[in-house]
């Protein structure tokens, strides 16, 4: 019995330790905040430190919350270096985060403000995917600064050459940088891989740190107009039909043939008078005269003129549509897809 009670007591003592080691980052954050609010700053720092160490398990807002409480706990533990490092990390995560005045005392906010003034970093938000008509629409990038400093915003091609310098100058709190999808020479951007590079600069112009945002730009199909077709139904016949002329010639020849055959048809046999061949010749000549009169398709001048006007009008419409299509293609929309930002220290690589 004594041995059994001792075993249960041992289990009871070791259980909290096992449970703590199995806690998730989120549970550690909650426990750390509770410890902080209970003024157990050492426990809070320990729990929050472990939560931050598991940052992969935390969403950005929770990580920022953990860093804020951890920095505050370190302030109250009189560990200013640790507090500075934590707040600096918080600012690098996103300059918009920081201890609010309702939850954290002025002492904590003072330390944070000192760190913010000393830390020069940028964050940016932009649409993840955007259809943009170069020259007409714009991609608006909102840039946030930890504190006042100089910055430069550049769009680079994949090979590292600059497409456009969006901005170079000071930033106080935030800035909106519009880009209309054209390069520095005014031509629309061509599909490809680009990078939006935001560089925080020192007063001497040296690059302190850079934020690289990949931009995948692809072409979107332009809605062009169909080239008008010249319908045959719009055109008048430009030549008369050869049928009447051929029919006249055939009639003359057929009449002549009938004259030759008439004696047989009348039952007189082949013994017809030779004089009938004069009529055969006359009918043949009449057929030729009909052919000459009708011709094998004579031009119809008024129809030629009318058709020329129709064709001219059609060509003008085609040229107009081609011009419109060229204009539409030159302003063909592109699709801009922004990737996850990459933060690097110093110059962009």
């Amino acid at each position: 019995m004594t041995r059994a009670v001792g075993l249960l007591a041992a289990l009871a003592l070791t259980a909290p330790i096992s449970a703590t080691s199995a806690q998730t980052a989120s549970q550690l954050l909650t426990a750390g905040v509770v410890a902080y609010e209970d003024f157990d700053f050492a426990q809070a720092a320990r729990l929050l430190g472990r939560a931050v160490a598991l940052e992969d398990q935390l969403p950005e807002t929770d990580l920022a919350r953990a860093l804020t409480y951890l920095g505050a706990a370190e302030v109250f533990r009189e560990r200013s270096d640790a507090a500075t490092a934590v707040f600096r990390r918080l600012l690098l995560l996103d300059p918009r985060h920081g201890p609010d005045s309702l939850r954290f005392p002025a002492r904590v906010r003072r330390v944070f403000d000192d760190v913010r003034q000393a830390t020069k970093t940028l964050a940016a938000t932009l649409p993840g995917r955007l259809h943009l008509m170069p020259g007409r629409d714009s991609l608006r990038t909102h840039v946030y600064a930890s504190s006042f400093h100089d910055m430069a915003a550049t769009i680079e091609r994949e090979d590292g050459t600059a497409l456009l310098v969006l901005y170079s100058g000071p930033i106080r709190d935030s800035l909106t940088l519009p880009w209309d999808g054209r390069g520095g020479d005014g031509t629309p951007v061509t599909p490809g891989r680009y990078r939006l590079i935001l560089v925080s600069q020192s007063p001497t112009g040296a690059a302190l740190r850079s934020l690289l945002i990949p931009l995948e730009i692809s072409a979107s199909r332009a809605d062009t107009l169909a080239i008008p077709r010249l319908a045959d139904s719009l055109l008048l016949p430009e030549r008369t039909s050869p049928a009447p002329g051929l029919l006249a010639l055939a009639s003359g020849i057929a009449g002549g043939g009938l004259v030759v055959l008439l004696p047989r048809m009348a039952g007189a046999g082949p013994d017809g008078g030779g004089g009938r061949f004069a009529v055969v010749g006359a009918l043949g000549l009449a057929g030729v005269a009909g052919l000459v009169h009708h011709g094998l398709g004579r031009p119809i001048p008024e129809n030629v003129v009318a058709n020329a006007a129709v064709r001219r009008s059609w060509r003008e419409r085609v040229e107009q549509v081609q011009q419109d299509n060229a204009r539409l293609r030159s302003f063909a929309p592109v699709v801009i897809q922004a990737g996850a930002p990459i933060r690097v220290e110093g110059e962009p690589r």
């Binding site: 029919l247 006249a248 009639s251 003359g252 009449g255 009938l258 048809m265 009918l283 009449a286 057929g287 005269a289 009909g290 009169h293 009708h294």
Partner: peptide, 15 residues
């Protein structure tokens, strides 16, 4: 009647 040239020249056959 076959009008070779309308209103001008006709050929005809009668049986």
């Amino acid at each position: 009647t076959a009008p070779l040239i309308p209103s001008r020249l006709d050929a005809y056959a009668e049986l």
